[in-house]
Deep mutational scan, measured.
Amino acid sequence: HNLTITQGKLFFHYNPKLCLSEIHKMEEVSGTKGRQERNDIALKTNGDQASCENELLKFSYIRTSFDKILLRWEPYWPPDFRDLLGFMLFYKEAPYQNVTEFDGQDACGSNSWTVVDIDPPLRSNDPKSQNHPGWLMRGLKPWTQYAIFVKTLVTFSDERRTYGAKSDIIYVQTDATNPSVPLDPISVSNSSSQIILKWKPPSDPNGNITHYLVFWERQAEDSELFELDYCLKGLKLPSRTWSPPFESEDSQKHNQSEYEDSAGECCSCPKTDSQILKELEESSFRKTFEDYLHNVVFVPRKTSSGTGAEDPRPSRKRRSLGDVGNVTVAVPTVAAFPNTSSTSVPTSPEEHRPFEKVVNKESLVISGLRHFTGYRIELQACNQDTPEERCSVAAYVSARTMPEAKADDIVGPVTHEIFENNVVHLMWQEPKEPNGLIVLYEVSYRRYGDEELHLCVSRKHFALERGCRLRGLSPGNYSVRIRATSLAGNGSWTEPTYFYVTDYLDVPSNIA
């Protein structure tokens, strides 16, 4: 807008934040220059609390790290170098490059900038070799853009010569660093050979998330399962459950009422301010606690030095998902009996873990797994792929695949051998790939016309006998059925096997 004052003059007093240069501009645009008398524009009460600059400061050096910015700028000295009290560095987070010096300023003089007072450097006698002032900004957020400017702080001049310097606002972004852990990993099994893994992005990506790394490792069953005799009275049979499938998407929606109208769909109840505040506090606490764990609990591995020492970490090797089922080394339970199943799973520490690289999504279907087997899954978020990966501390989750139908069934015939004193040795093959492992066998036998009897055969007993022995049988026709019990439950009964026990007292003698 054009402003013209045809008559009258300007009068400025007691404006401590208004620089004289701005008042002189007002004289020019209003056409009143030359009308004012000496005392109409006070030299001592206008701009006496402001830094009124008329020179431009330029930054000469900028260096960044993930949490620091090192700045240096060209030296500046007023005509009387004693008038320079120091520099004021202003900075704040700036997602967009549209910041002005006066953003967030209120009537009390406060604003949204963080201000650092910096002492002037030592003055050199040689004007050509003056030290460049600077400042190291610490405690910054990774991968965050900051708006920065600097200006001088000078003393009051009796001659009211307006001098000083100020830089333009520059924008500097800190470097990326390792992201925080992925949030809320959930693993479920939808079949006997697959596990579905879902997660949420890290709360602090500290860069642009480029991919996720998912490692999985087959877990050995508890050692007590191999040692305890679950045929003993009072000892509860062990059981394991597989990871249940995901709930429906509708039930997972946030901010939804727990109660549904019987007449149909209901609208979600909005969260109160107290609920939102509580969630923010919980989120802040979780982030602080995660940072504490990362800094205190997890110790970084030592990389190899120039002395030739090897990095103890196993090298990563990509495998196809079809090879995942046989990740671990199978060892027989008892070496003397080769027909026992290889369900003991000690994992070799030198073995390469299978892994998958996930790009542009937060889910993965891990296939080719062994049925009813526990897996430990390790999830890392990465925001750099080359020249070397920059990934987060791992988040861990466990899951067990679903049982395989008929995996616990005894394959092959049940054979028998009759000894003296009416002892019958029953023999059968253990299931080759049971659900988890076989903890015991149930032997059901009966003599024709009598009630059915049951015998429990422990895992250890089966390994020693290759089956079991029935003792003290009365003469007669017998039928026997056997079924295995694994961590997933009972298998199917075998087809009945028949044998006849004679009275050993009636056996004919070869003595003449």
Rank of each mutant, 00 (worst) to 15 (best):
434 P>A: 06
224 E>Q: 13
341 S>H: 14
374 G>W: 04
506 D>F: 14
469 R>L: 08
399 A>S: 10
213 L>A: 14
309 A>P: 07
218 R>A: 07
252 Q>S: 12
250 D>E: 12
286 R>A: 14
436 G>W: 02
459 R>G: 05
435 N>V: 00
510 N>S: 11
494 T>P: 01
351 E>R: 11
496 P>M: 02
356 E>L: 08
258 E>R: 10
325 G>K: 15
363 S>D: 03
290 E>Y: 03
452 E>F: 14
503 D>W: 10
417 E>F: 06
433 E>V: 13
433 E>H: 03
304 S>G: 09
302 K>S: 11
242 W>Y: 05
407 A>D: 05
371 H>F: 14
303 T>S: 07
334 V>P: 11
245 P>Y: 14
344 S>D: 04
226 F>R: 13
282 E>F: 14
352 H>T: 04
475 P>N: 09
461 H>Y: 12
441 Y>P: 00
414 V>F: 03
268 S>T: 15
485 T>I: 11
375 Y>I: 07
249 E>H: 08
240 R>V: 12
238 P>L: 07
205 P>K: 00
340 T>V: 06
350 E>T: 12
371 H>I: 12
336 A>S: 12
300 P>E: 07
235 L>A: 08
463 A>V: 10
234 G>R: 12
396 Y>V: 01
362 E>Y: 14
292 Y>P: 08
214 V>T: 04
290 E>G: 14
403 P>K: 11
401 T>I: 04
334 V>E: 06
236 K>M: 07
371 H>G: 12
236 K>E: 11
292 Y>R: 07
314 P>S: 12
289 F>W: 10
446 R>H: 10
267 C>Y: 13
313 R>L: 03
478 Y>C: 00
400 R>C: 04
304 S>Q: 12
341 S>W: 14
353 R>G: 15
289 F>C: 03
397 V>H: 10
471 R>N: 10
412 G>P: 09
235 L>M: 10
230 Y>H: 03
402 M>R: 02
386 T>Y: 03
257 S>M: 06
324 V>S: 07
329 V>Q: 07
340 T>G: 08
432 K>D: 14
498 Y>V: 09
391 C>K: 02
391 C>Y: 15
271 K>S: 06
219 Q>H: 13
292 Y>L: 07
386 T>I: 15
392 S>L: 01
351 E>K: 14
309 A>M: 06
322 G>F: 02
382 C>P: 01
305 S>V: 13
482 I>S: 01
500 Y>D: 14
457 V>A: 03
363 S>Q: 12
487 L>P: 06
261 D>S: 12
482 I>D: 00
472 G>F: 08
337 F>K: 06
447 R>M: 03
468 C>W: 12
418 I>V: 09
394 A>H: 15
455 L>G: 08
338 P>I: 11
379 L>Y: 05
362 E>L: 06
280 L>F: 14
231 C>F: 03
406 K>W: 11
235 L>R: 09
495 E>C: 06
223 S>C: 13
385 D>I: 10
347 T>Q: 07
265 E>Q: 14
467 G>D: 01
343 T>N: 09
465 E>M: 10
499 F>I: 15
502 T>R: 10
392 S>M: 02
448 Y>C: 11
266 C>M: 05
335 A>T: 13
343 T>K: 12
277 L>I: 11
431 P>M: 01
407 A>L: 09
380 Q>D: 09
334 V>R: 12
234 G>M: 11
242 W>H: 12
367 S>A: 15
478 Y>Q: 02
314 P>K: 14
246 F>W: 12
472 G>L: 10
218 R>W: 02
296 V>G: 11
501 V>D: 03
291 D>H: 12
371 H>M: 01
276 I>A: 08
408 D>H: 01
226 F>S: 07
474 S>T: 09
493 W>C: 01
485 T>F: 05
351 E>D: 11
295 N>H: 03
258 E>A: 10
273 D>Y: 06
478 Y>D: 00
300 P>I: 06
456 C>N: 01
206 N>H: 09
381 A>W: 01
223 S>Y: 12
505 L>A: 09
347 T>H: 12
334 V>G: 11
455 L>A: 12
224 E>Y: 15
384 Q>L: 07
366 I>Y: 02
354 P>Q: 13
395 A>S: 12
